[in-house]
Amino acid sequence: MQKTPPITRGRKFAQVLDGARKIFLRDGFEGASVDDIAREAGVSKATLYSYFPDKRLMFIEVFRAELSRETHDSKALVNIDLPVHQVLPFVVQMLTGHLVSEFGIRVWRLSASEAERFPALAAEYYNSGPRDVQFKLSEYFEYCISRGELEIDDLALAADQLLQLCAVRVFDKAMFLGPASVTDEEIKQCCAGTVRMFLLTYGSKAVRDQVRSQEARPVRHSTAAE
């Protein structure tokens, strides 16, 4: 097995990494040129190579840095001690917002396009992304079950179903037409539908009644006098 050359970290390491990140997210591994990366980072090619002996190591470092950002963002998912019908809209909005964000779309495209070339990184993406979120959601669902708010037999399946519902309509549109093509109203409709379907399917009777009572309330319109 060929020994991987070490990565040197110095004064301009973060600068080089940021330039490489922008080019890799834009052009992918194959399309990214060392010249473009050096130009974007504002360093010479000699400086670039002094930090990263080859482009492959640079790509791996950039990809893992992106995964670290994504994993950190997911930690805030379920650390809120409120009724599930109040917490779930927040969780769903955060998940959907990430799925259709410029960052989320670019990292997904990058991991999918380079999965064959970098299978170990693709596995890292799955484990620290979708699988990690599934695990955190499952933990939260178990907590809600202990409080009598949810009734779920398969926690992992329910977590996957919630993630897929968060992507309905908006993710494909963002993927093919770009994140800017998805409107705030479309995201709002997706999130509301996701919360309603999930709670009516897995919520306890009290939670289901809560959802239906909110839907039955008349919409109060303000008047000019107010």
Rank of each mutant, 00 (worst) to 15 (best):
Gln2Cys: 07
Gln2Phe: 04
Lys3Leu: 11
Thr4Trp: 04
Pro5Cys: 02
Pro5Ala: 14
Pro6Glu: 15
Ile7His: 09
Thr8Leu: 05
Arg9Lys: 14
Phe13Arg: 02
Phe13Trp: 06
Ala14His: 05
Ala14Ile: 00
Gln15Cys: 14
Val16Lys: 01
Leu17Glu: 01
Leu17Asn: 00
Leu17Gly: 05
Lys22Glu: 13
Lys22Ala: 10
Lys22Val: 12
Ile23Tyr: 02
Ile23Arg: 05
Ile23His: 00
Phe24Ser: 12
Arg26His: 04
Asp27Glu: 10
Phe29Ile: 10
Glu30Thr: 15
Gly31Cys: 05
Ala32Phe: 00
Val34Asp: 04
Asp36Val: 08
Glu40Met: 06
Ala41Met: 08
Gly42Glu: 01
Ser44His: 07
Lys45Asn: 13
Ala46Met: 13
Ala46Lys: 09
Leu48Lys: 03
Leu48Ser: 08
Phe52Cys: 08
Lys55Asp: 05
Met58Asn: 11
Ile60Lys: 12
Val62Arg: 00
Arg64Phe: 02
Arg64Cys: 06
Ala65Phe: 03
Glu66Ala: 07
Glu66Gly: 09
Ser68Arg: 10
Ser68Gly: 15
Arg69Leu: 10
Arg69Tyr: 06
Glu70Leu: 15
Glu70Phe: 08
Asp73Ile: 01
Ser74Asp: 10
Ser74Gln: 15
Ala76Gln: 12
Ala76Tyr: 00
Ala76Asp: 11
Val78His: 08
Asp81Leu: 11
Asp81Thr: 10
Pro83Asn: 00
Pro83His: 01
Val87Leu: 14
Leu88Ser: 06
Leu88Phe: 02
Phe90Asn: 07
Phe90Gly: 08
Met94Pro: 04
Met94Asp: 14
Gly97Asp: 15
Val100Asn: 07
Ser101Thr: 09
Glu102Pro: 09
Glu102Ala: 10
Phe103Gln: 14
Gly104Ile: 03
Ile105Pro: 08
Arg106Met: 15
Val107Met: 06
Arg109Asp: 09
Arg109Ile: 01
Arg109Trp: 07
Leu110Ile: 00
Leu110Cys: 03
Ser113Thr: 13
Ser113Leu: 07
Glu114Ala: 01
Ala115Leu: 01
Arg117Asp: 07
Arg117Leu: 11
Ala123Glu: 04
Gly129His: 07
Pro130Asp: 05
Asp132Ser: 15
Gln134Trp: 05
Leu137Phe: 06
Glu139Gly: 10
Tyr140Thr: 00
Tyr140Gln: 02
Phe141Trp: 13
Phe141Ala: 11
Tyr143Met: 13
Ser146Asn: 09
Arg147Leu: 15
Arg147Lys: 15
Arg147Pro: 07
Arg147Ile: 07
Gly148His: 04
Gly148Val: 00
Leu150Arg: 00
Leu150Met: 05
Glu151Val: 13
Asp154Val: 04
Leu157Ala: 09
Ala159Ile: 03
Ala159Pro: 03
Gln161Glu: 07
Gln161Trp: 03
Leu163Ala: 11
Gln164Val: 05
Leu165Cys: 06
Leu165Pro: 09
Ala167Tyr: 03
Arg169Tyr: 09
Val170Tyr: 01
Val170Asn: 03
Asp172Gly: 13
Asp172His: 06
Lys173Val: 08
Lys173Arg: 13
Ala174Asn: 08
Pro179Ala: 03
Ser181Tyr: 01
Asp184Ser: 04
Gln189Tyr: 12
Gln189Cys: 12
Cys190Asp: 02
Cys191Gly: 06
Cys191Glu: 01
Ala192Phe: 05
Gly193Leu: 02
Thr194Ser: 09
Thr194Cys: 11
Tyr202Gly: 06
Gly203Tyr: 07
Lys205Val: 01
Lys205Leu: 05
Val211Leu: 04
Gln214Pro: 06
Arg217Phe: 12
His221Lys: 07
Ser222Ala: 15
